[in-house]
């Protein structure tokens, strides 16, 4: 087995290990965080601070009965939750977590796939997520599921436009699809004071990206596909046990990947001014990953914070926001960035 292949496998394993932690930790953060915001205690019985609550939840999920509705399309009903994990488990490959390092005389880039198509690949893989929702809604043979799936797909493809245009505006001054180039571009500072992060010159793009990210991950205030008060639980109404847990995990992992992407595009990624990124390769990798995870954690907490603060939108409001506010805003942002890039300011 070649060294490159081994290195790739090792990097993938590292990402997987981290991503699989996201769901249990986020469930705990979500429950305790919501309790904090609502001035109550939340789960605090299992382990210190209720930290092992997620473990108990996992056991509960495994022990529950797995029900497939009689009239359901069995094949698709089983396939949909598995498909939900595909975008979550593939999109991380283009996100870099450090500079190139030298391991045993081999040069190893700290990104699983340093493809030149970079972000484009990520967006393409993420766009496949809509099929699992449609499959779940269709195969359940249930009106609530169906309505949830139609809403979800409409929402996903509407907000994907704004998201893509916001990402495009970031890539324009960089001149590359590669996320490592984006990170490199953001090193340095404005006036020697502020870090040269994209969030400062492209604040509008950042806002559009964050709002669209909420819609893409079906999080409140945009969780219309599963609006409990109208649709029971939307496309996963008919799911129970581990199949339901898979949707759940897909959602949280999608949030984590989008948070990493947001951190890379707008907050300088793995780079933090002041850190030298020198020393043995494992120390560099640990620094890069640590910084990236810390920045992504900010976003993840923001997701939770917003969820327990804002009420849900109505579907027509959601569509209006997407098409009449975010899309024009992102186009304006794109034009402004293009003009500034041509003028040589950015």
């Amino acid at each position: 087995m070649s060294f490159d292949l081994l290195a790739t496998l090792a990097k993938t394993a590292l990402w997987m290990a981290l991503l699989l932690q996201v769901t249990p930790i986020m469930v705990w953060v979500e429950r305790r965080g919501s309790a904090m915001i609502q001035d109550r205690l939340g789960p605090n019985r299992v382990g210190p601070f209720g930290l092992f609550q997620s473990l108990a939840d996992a056991v509960k999920f495994l022990c529950k009965e797995d029900i497939t509705p009689v009239e359901a399309d069995k094949f698709m009903h089983g396939l949909a939750p598995v498909l939900a994990l595909i975008p979550a488990l593939t999109t991380f490959v283009v996100i870099p977590f450090g500079p190139d390092v030298t391991v045993l005389g081999h040069r190893v880039p700290l990104v699983v796939a340093g493809a030149e198509t970079g972000v484009l690949l990520l967006l393409a893989l993420a766009s496949l997520g809509v099929y699992s929702l449609v499959m779940a809604g269709y195969s359940s043979n249930n009106k609530y599921s169906m309505l949830g799936a139609v809403r979800a797909s409409a929402q996903l493809i509407s907000y994907e436009l704004a998201l893509t245009l916001a990402v495009l505006a970031v890539l324009m001054p960089v001149g590359s699809f590669e996320l490592n180039e984006v990170v490199r571009y953001q090193q340095g500072s404005f006036f020697g004071l502020l870090p040269r992060w994209n969030v400062i010159p492209q604040f509008i793009g950042f806002l559009v990206f964050v709002v669209a990210a909420f819609a893409e991950t079906n999080r409140l205030p945009f969780d219309l596909p599963e609006a409990e008060s109208e649709l029971v639980a939307g496309y996963h109404t008919e799911y129970s046990s581990m199949k339901f847990a898979l949707f759940f995990m897909g959602e949280y992992m999608g949030m984590a990947t989008l948070s990493c992407l947001a951190a890379t595009l707008y907050l300088g990624g793995w780079h933090l001014p002041g850190l030298s990124y020198s020393g043995p390769w494992w120390w560099v990798a640990a620094q890069g990953m640590g910084v990236l995870v810390a920045k992504a954690t900010l976003f993840l907490f923001f997701f939770v914070w917003v969820r327990w603060t804002f009420p849900r939108f109505r579907f027509d409001q959601l569509m209006r926001l997407g098409w009449k506010v975010l899309l024009p805003l992102s186009i304006l942002n794109l034009i402004a960035v293009a003009a500034l890039t041509v003028a040589g300011v950015l």
Binding site: A115, E116, T117, L120, L121, L123, A124, L125, S127, L128, V130, Y131, V134, S153, I157, E160
Partner: peptide, 18 residues
Amino acid sequence: APFLAAIQVLVYTGAIVV
């Protein structure tokens, strides 16, 4: 043609087929 591949997935499967 990796660019075409990405566009194929993004445009064809991500938009047209939906």
